[in-house]
């Protein structure tokens, strides 16, 4: 459990790194958007890692069961919200990309910049 705990945090760190790298380094807009989802996914992992309790189960209270251990419901609620925010951002970004392609004929950021200067 100890090892898995640290491993969770490290995977969070690595995913954060991979996603953020794509956001900064890629010029392709779809790639940037996908990088953003990885980046956000990493944060989901951070929150959900917090909710785990040893020997616990999902926080759905069973009638008649006493002394049951439940995982923490609050981070779950927060991440439900964040997931929905994430897809909303993706959808809007994608619509922008479609319009950008129609207007510029490319979805590479450096090329749109070059076209704007001309």
């Amino acid at each position: 459990m100890e090892l898995l705990g640290l491993f969770n945090y490290w995977v969070f760190a690595v995913l954060l790194m991979v996603g953020f790298y794509a956001v900064i380094a890629k010029t392709n807009m779809v790639k940037k958007l996908l990088g953003l989802s990885i980046f956000q996914g990493a944060v989901f992992l951070l929150y959900i890692t917090m909710d785990k309790v040893d020997g616990g189960t999902a926080p759905i209270i069973q009638p008649g069961v006493v002394d049951a251990i439940y995982s923490n419901p609050l981070p779950q609620v927060l991440i439900l919200t964040a997931i929905v925010v994430g897809i909303s951002t993706t959808a809007l970004g994608l619509a922008l990309i479609v319009r950008i392609y129609e207007a510029y004929g490319t979805i590479e950021e450096d090329e749109t910049q070059r076209l704007d200067i001309e």
Partner: peptide, 26 residues
């Protein structure tokens, strides 16, 4: 990690709808 609700949402929204929208955009 015992987060059943979040798992269901991620599966339905992240893996399902999000992929469909991305393909539609692509």
């Amino acid at each position: 990690l015992d987060a059943a609700d979040v798992a269901l949402t991620e599966a339905a929204v992240g893996a399902g709808i999000s992929t469909v929208l991305l393909l539609g955009g692509l």
